[in-house]
């Protein structure tokens, strides 16, 4: 092979490495089980990744600034029980439950952001604190019990479909598209990349670093609120102990998708591919009836393998 060709191949892999891994995995699963590559199953996979997908899009904002948000799972639980409290039949319009849930989430995110920026406390610690505070609040608000008896106009957000496409999938699409445009095409979006890439340089060039970072945490919290609403609607109850360790899956999806843990690099398209890879894996292993012990081992290996493969392409 000539050097020119080799470098072109390397460039191709670097752009589409993760996509290639995903296609390979899907191809393998289609050969191994006849139930994988059906339209119905692929829709199910999309529905199953929608909650993790929304969270992963949100955490991408924070990761891009060089921060991290460990409180997502607890915020999902808190916003789920809060929204469910406003979603009993015949009490309030659904839109209020949704707004309250999103506001509760962005409130948590705002607090995270303000303490990170104004208080100069490491994001790891701030959001770790929020992880236990939000979980505690969820238990206090709900009295330790699931909030049930939700109106059908609320649960349709998790279980319904429009022209055959599940509503959670549509929500994820809207969130992802809007975030992609915001991050790539708007000034505040580009500032998020600039702050994560080199905070000192961003500051020197006149960017309001504090505002940009706080915005990222607030958006991330708000999207966690949205995910909490979709989860509560899907399982038809707001649960104070829902969402445990969801933050790890969300961060994993973003990082698999090429978003750097040190900030400045990555994006929404990659994050979606990462979430999709994890979802296809979960679904495929269940379809093949792999034992639950082995599922955990296989998942871990494939996640690390995918990132390794991807990074090898980039170098």
């Amino acid at each position: 092979m000539q050097p020119g060709q080799a470098s072109r191949l390397a460039e191709w892999i670097s752009r589409y490495g993760l996509l290639l891994a995903l296609v390979l995995l899907a191809g393998l699963l289609s050969c191994l089980t006849p139930n994988f590559a059906t339209a119905q199953n692929l829709l199910i996979v999309l529905r199953q990744i929608s909650i993790n997908g929304i969270l992963a899009v949100g955490v991408t904002y924070v990761l891009l600034t060089g921060g991290v948000d460990l409180s997502l799972g607890s915020v999902v639980a808190l916003t789920g029980v809060v929204a469910a409290g406003f979603a009993h039949p015949g009490e309030y319009p659904v839109i209020l439950a949704v707004l309250v849930g999103i506001l509760a989430g962005s409130g948590c995110g705002l607090v995270n952001g303000l303490i990170v920026t104004r208080g100069k406390v490491a994001p790891f610690i701030v959001t770790l604190g929020m992880l236990t505070v939000a979980r505690g609040l969820a238990l206090v608000v709900s009295g330790g019990r699931p909030v049930s008896n939700l109106s059908s106009s609320f649960t349709v957000l998790g279980g319904g479909a429009i022209i055959g496409i599940p509503i959670p999938v549509l929500i994820l699409c809207v969130v992802a598209f809007a975030s992609h445009v915001f991050l790539k095409r708007t000034r505040p979006g580009r500032y998020i990349y600039a702050v994560g890439g080199n905070e000192a340089a961003a500051y020197a060039s006149g960017i309001n670093v504090t505002a940009v970072k706080t915005l990222a945490y607030a958006v991330c919290g708000g999207l966690a609120g949205l995910a909490g609403i979709v989860l509560a609607a899907r399982i038809t109850t707001g649960q104070p102990n829902a969402g445990i360790a969801y933050e790890l899956d969300a961060i994993a999806a973003a990082v698999i998708g090429g978003t750097s843990l040190s900030g400045g690099v990555g994006g929404i398209v990659g994050t979606l591919l990462g979430a999709l890879l994890m979802g296809v894996l979960n679904n495929g292993l269940d379809l093949m009836n792999v034992s639950s012990y082995w599922q955990q081992i296989v998942k871990g290996l494939i996640i690390v393998g995918a990132v390794w493969f991807d990074q090898k392409g980039r170098r």
Binding site: R234, A242, N282, D286, N289, S291, S292
Partner: peptide, 23 residues
Amino acid sequence: LSEQTAEWDRAKAMALMENWIQS
């Protein structure tokens, strides 16, 4: 026919059941 864990969790159980329906 099959047995699998859903870790006591409602959301995981939904996903597992959907996958079983496919298989």
